[in-house]
Amino acid sequence: MKIAIIVNPLIPVPPEQYGGIERIAFMLIQELKKKGHDITLYANEHSQPGCKLIGYRESAHYGVKDLLKINRLTSKIAFQHFDIVHTFGRMSNIALLMLSRIPKIVSYQLPPTVSQVKKAVSIAHKNTLKFTACSNYIANQINAFADVTTIYNGVDLNDYDFNAGVPDDAPLAFLGRIQHEKGTAIAIHTAKKTNQKLVIAGNVPNEPIHQQYFNEQVKPHIDGEQIKYIGPVNNRQKNDLLRNSKAFLMPVTWDEPFGIVMAEALACGTPVIGFNRGAIPEIVTNGLNGFVCDMEADMITAINSIDSISRASCRKIAEQKFSAGVLAKQYEELYQLARDKD
């Protein structure tokens, strides 16, 4: 098939550090290429996807000029004999394409704006628009209004080294943006309560509210011994951190749509301990590849029970549910279904 994939142009594909959507798009492109498909990526002009690239830009404050300029670009897809257009980006950037007969896949990695979903369905050419969601949590917000399929995010297993066992003094790990919604301070508190070491990795967003959170609730506890902060990490550093950790903590205070880092941890054989929010109970099977907790006290109990989790089972679940090959196969099947329906 000849496939057009669209990603918002703020971050190159693949990303150097953080950029979950860009990472998923890159991984999908690599797998589809292996299957012999012809891929064109519309993305940041500095991307290196290993396929044909159409670079484009948008301004820092997306507006009407951006919408019109980008639609002039994407509308040409309808006349270039593509079999499928698949966007991970703004749905407004394919507004004109909605009118064409070409099958369209719109992938949601964040909670949808229902009004936009309804509007897209109302203007799209009949039987040409399908949605995907990165979890059932997201799909359940769409399925009353549109045709949606859950396709979990995944990881390239070759990028993550399985570690069958770690020493008793191995640390816990926290990896993500340092902000209240991610629960960094909760991770610190539970590590201290269980007398465990904790390694924190991730960036502190520039907004004052996040800087204040770091300075007041995280930084005072960093001692370089029990609680370490190593800043943003690249792929190699991430692999080293996750594979050498006793458990990965996911104490989020918001409804996490998926959390790719959980799949990355499982690929290393590292159990995940997270709160019962969003998609976490879809990824973590309680007692099998980690623990799902309702409150901080449950997380403390789970940390003390982490030796009951088989690291081999964690890796096996990553292979079966969250691998690049599984993800690409599901998208390929959806592409074919969309073409057959046209």
Rank of each mutant, 00 (worst) to 15 (best):
L198H: 05
L198M: 07
I227P: 06
I227W: 04
F214G: 00
R236G: 01
Q212D: 13
S245N: 04
V204F: 12
Y213F: 14
A201D: 07
I227R: 03
K228I: 01
G202M: 08
D223E: 07
H221S: 10
P220E: 05
I227M: 04
L249S: 01
K197S: 13
Q217F: 15
G224K: 05
K238A: 00
L249C: 02
H221V: 05
Q212K: 14
D223P: 08
I200P: 12
R243K: 14
Q226Y: 08
Y229M: 03
P232C: 03
G202Y: 05
E207P: 13
Y229V: 02
K219L: 07
K228H: 06
H210E: 11
Q226M: 13
L198Q: 06
Q217Y: 15
S245E: 05
A201Y: 11
L249Q: 00
Y229G: 04
N215K: 13
G224S: 06
N244R: 04
K238T: 00
N239I: 00
E216C: 12
G202I: 05
E216S: 12
V233M: 04
S245R: 01
N235P: 13
Q211A: 05
H210A: 13
F214K: 02
K219T: 03
Q196V: 11
K238V: 00
G231E: 03
N203C: 15
G202R: 11
N235W: 09
K228N: 04
G224C: 08
L242C: 02
V204A: 06
L241K: 00
G202T: 10
K197W: 13
L198R: 03
H221Q: 12
H221L: 08
N206R: 15
S245L: 01
K238I: 00
N234K: 04
Q212G: 07
E216T: 12
N215Y: 13
D223R: 02
R243Y: 10
M250C: 10
K219N: 05
P208T: 06
L242W: 05
K246H: 02
I209V: 15
N244I: 06
Q212V: 14
D223V: 08
M250H: 07
L249Y: 03
H210R: 11
L242P: 06
G202E: 02
I209G: 12
H210Y: 15
K219S: 09
K246D: 03
L198V: 05
D240I: 03
Q211W: 10
Q196P: 13
